[in-house]
Structures are given as structure tokens and as C-alpha cells.
Amino acid sequence: MTPDAFLSLLHDHWPMTLAALDDGQRVRLHDALHDLATADDGRSVERALRGLRMQLRTLPPDHPVSQELGGTVRYAPGARATTIDRVLLGELLNVFAAPARGPGDLRRAAHDRLWEVPALGTAELVPEAAHDTAAAGLIRLSHPGVEDRYPRFQFMPGTGQPLPVVRRVNHILMADKDPWGAAAWWLGGNRWLAGVPAELLGAVPDEDLARAALELVAG
């Protein structure tokens, strides 16, 4: 993974990342990002990148960013680390310039992102799925005062029929107890699968998806 790809991954999971850290860890993460932003040569950029990755090692092992921390950083030929995306870096730092946000606020921001993914309502499900969603093994996302949403990737295209592999993996992920965590797994990057699980449905063997979920649970 290149430095820019790593920053892009961090950007995609930024609210979830900050929500997983305590106040002291967020301060140290800010300092590491600031060091990267002010680095003015290849050597200092590489040193700042190492410091940033070190601060992120406090993330839970199932966090999408954690899954990339053990990988080797690769650079474009002749470019080394001086090709850092300063726009992305600035957006990450801008969060710290905003009014302080507690873990609850950041967790809600992560939930809001998941809430916006394409989804079906209860009326769009096939009768057997709508009758007993827990038994059907579906991720059901709930917000007070609005209809529950069922992320669209769980169903056969053009239907409200659940995919058997999704129900199997959701059972492994205990989606009935933690639907938001299960949704984050499906819709986040996965190092074991080298992609986003929801986007790999039908493209990789069902066994690979189940094995990747078991790797998370075992971890």
C-alpha cells in the first residue's frame, strides 16, 4: 500500500478511527499528522509516516485501518514519500480544528455514514424475511422515529431475497447483537480479502467470505 492509499483508507474511516481512541491517543495522533504535514523532505516524511502508523497501532485489531498497519509501505518509482496527498492530509487535520467531539459524536458520525448506504425497507423484503429478520440473519439498522433499513448488498439483485452467504456471515459476525459492527465489516476494506466484502459478493467464493469473517472473530 502506498502512503497516499494509506491516507485515503484513513480518510474513509476517519470518524470510526477517532471514536476508537481516547483523548490522549487523539492528541498524539494529531501531533503525528502535524509532523507529516510539516515534513519537507523525503527522509522526514518517511519518519513522520512511521510515527503515524505507530500511533494507529492502538486501534482495535478488527478496525479496517489496523488490518493495513502490518503491510509494507510502497512508493511510486523514484517518488518515495514526497508524493503525500496534502489535500487529504489537510482534511484529516481539519477535524481537530473543529469544536471538540466526544466518542459518542464520532460514533454517531460513523453510524450516519452506514445509514446512507443503499438499503431496503421492511415492505420491500420477501415475506419470510420480513416476518422474522433475526432468523433470516439480516443486518437491520435502526434510528429512532424512522423505518428500519436493511443494507442492499444483503439481497439478490433486484429482489428482497436474502443471499444465503450473507446470512451465514452475519451469523458469524453476530449481526443480531451488533448490526452496526457487522455493517462496518461488510462495507469496510478487508486485508484478507483484498477488497470490500460487500463488493466481492459473487466475485469470490462464499467460503472465502465466511473464512474472512471467522478470521475476525478468531482475532
Rank of each mutant, 00 (worst) to 15 (best):
residue 1 M to F: 12
residue 2 T to P: 14
residue 3 P to H: 06
residue 4 D to E: 12
residue 4 D to G: 11
residue 4 D to N: 15
residue 5 A to G: 13
residue 7 L to W: 01
residue 8 S to K: 12
residue 8 S to H: 14
residue 8 S to G: 15
residue 10 L to K: 10
residue 11 H to P: 03
residue 11 H to Q: 12
residue 13 H to R: 05
residue 14 W to P: 03
residue 16 M to L: 03
residue 20 A to L: 05
residue 21 L to F: 08
residue 22 D to F: 08
residue 23 D to M: 08
residue 23 D to T: 13
residue 23 D to K: 05
residue 24 G to C: 12
residue 25 Q to H: 15
residue 28 R to F: 05
residue 28 R to Q: 08
residue 29 L to G: 01
residue 30 H to Y: 01
residue 30 H to M: 02
residue 33 L to P: 00
residue 34 H to L: 12
residue 37 A to H: 15
residue 38 T to Y: 02
residue 40 D to A: 15
residue 41 D to E: 12
residue 43 R to D: 06
residue 43 R to F: 04
residue 46 E to P: 01
residue 48 A to M: 06
residue 49 L to W: 04
residue 49 L to A: 06
residue 49 L to Y: 08
residue 51 G to N: 15
residue 52 L to S: 04
residue 53 R to A: 02
residue 56 L to H: 10
residue 56 L to I: 13
residue 59 L to D: 04
residue 59 L to S: 10
residue 60 P to Q: 12
residue 61 P to C: 00
residue 62 D to W: 14
residue 64 P to W: 00
residue 66 S to M: 09
residue 66 S to V: 08
residue 70 G to K: 03
residue 72 T to Q: 15
residue 75 Y to P: 07
residue 75 Y to F: 13
residue 75 Y to A: 13
residue 77 P to R: 15
residue 78 G to R: 01
residue 81 A to W: 00
residue 83 T to G: 07
residue 85 D to M: 14
residue 86 R to I: 11
residue 86 R to Y: 11
residue 89 L to I: 06
residue 90 G to R: 00
residue 92 L to V: 06
residue 96 F to Y: 05
residue 98 A to D: 07
residue 101 R to S: 08
residue 104 G to I: 08
residue 111 H to G: 00
residue 111 H to L: 02
residue 113 R to E: 14
residue 113 R to T: 10
residue 114 L to S: 11
residue 115 W to I: 05
residue 116 E to Q: 15
residue 119 A to W: 03
residue 119 A to H: 05
residue 120 L to S: 10
residue 122 T to P: 14
residue 122 T to D: 12
residue 123 A to W: 00
residue 124 E to H: 00
residue 127 P to R: 06
residue 127 P to F: 01
residue 129 A to N: 03
residue 130 A to P: 06
residue 130 A to F: 06
residue 131 H to M: 09
residue 132 D to N: 11
residue 132 D to R: 14
residue 134 A to D: 13
residue 137 G to T: 11
residue 137 G to Y: 09
residue 138 L to K: 08
residue 138 L to S: 05
residue 141 L to N: 03
residue 145 G to S: 04
residue 146 V to H: 09
residue 147 E to Q: 09
residue 148 D to Y: 02
residue 149 R to I: 02
residue 152 R to D: 06
residue 153 F to P: 03
residue 154 Q to K: 03
residue 155 F to E: 07
residue 157 P to M: 03
residue 160 G to D: 08
residue 162 P to N: 07
residue 164 P to N: 08
residue 164 P to R: 05
residue 164 P to G: 07
residue 166 V to N: 04
residue 167 R to M: 07
residue 168 R to Q: 13
residue 168 R to D: 10
residue 168 R to F: 09
residue 169 V to I: 04
residue 171 H to R: 15
residue 171 H to N: 15
residue 174 M to V: 15
residue 176 D to T: 11
residue 176 D to P: 02
residue 178 D to G: 08
residue 179 P to T: 06
residue 181 G to H: 02
residue 182 A to G: 15
residue 184 A to D: 13
residue 186 W to F: 05
residue 190 N to S: 14
residue 190 N to A: 11
residue 190 N to D: 13
residue 191 R to Y: 00
residue 192 W to Q: 08
residue 192 W to F: 06
residue 194 A to I: 05
residue 194 A to Q: 11
residue 201 L to K: 10
residue 202 G to T: 13
residue 203 A to Y: 01
residue 204 V to L: 12
residue 205 P to A: 13
residue 205 P to S: 11
residue 207 E to S: 02
residue 207 E to H: 01
residue 209 L to A: 05
residue 209 L to V: 09
residue 213 A to I: 02
residue 214 L to P: 07
residue 215 E to D: 12
residue 215 E to I: 09
residue 216 L to I: 07
residue 219 G to D: 00
